[in-house]
Amino acid sequence: MNIFRILGDLSHLTSIIILLHTINTNKSTTGISLKTQILYVIVFITRYLDLFTKFISVYNTLMKIFFIISSVYIVYLIQYKYSQKHMVKQDLDNFKVEYLLAGSLLASLIFNYKFTPLEILWSFSLWLESVAILPQLMMLTRTGEADMLTTNYIFCLGLYRAFYIPNWFYRYFAEGHFDKLAVFTGLIQTLLYSDFFYIYYKNVIQARSSKLP
């Protein structure tokens, strides 16, 4: 494990802890896309099926279990504990996720390392993760404002993806490891986040500073 990989994983962990902490402090899930969070549950479950077939390391196993359990817990919080059903804002979360699911399934059937259920589901999880943030980003675009929670959360997720890129360079040169599917889908995902931050910067930060006297 190299430093970039560890920093990437820690950023990912931090994003989830920020989300959980803020939900439980504010007792509210306003601004969080239920659809994106459900997609993450699907991503983690389909990717980490190898928990049953292969042991990589204690670190790896614990992280996988944490990601699965925390994602299910977040969906539970949004859906039941701090339900958004009575709120108008939920109508903003109307991204057609069927297209993301169908597209990811199609891509995983075409691009995989082996035509076996586990490998197809693994590839499916990569494609789906690369676009899973879209409902959340659309929701932000519609409301036209991002509160600190969603901004910090998305920033940490973006950081996680950004750290994975030097990690792949490092692994390619140091270990001869190159996972073309993970790299390609990872780059798509990083581009989505950078696009978001570009728009966010243009609309929010610059607008805010130009308003100042």
Binding site: H12, D50, I56, N60, F67, D179
Partner: peptide, 10 residues
Amino acid sequence: KNTANAHDEL
């Protein structure tokens, strides 16, 4: 060596 199928990343 080919470790592409290791899937050892999260």
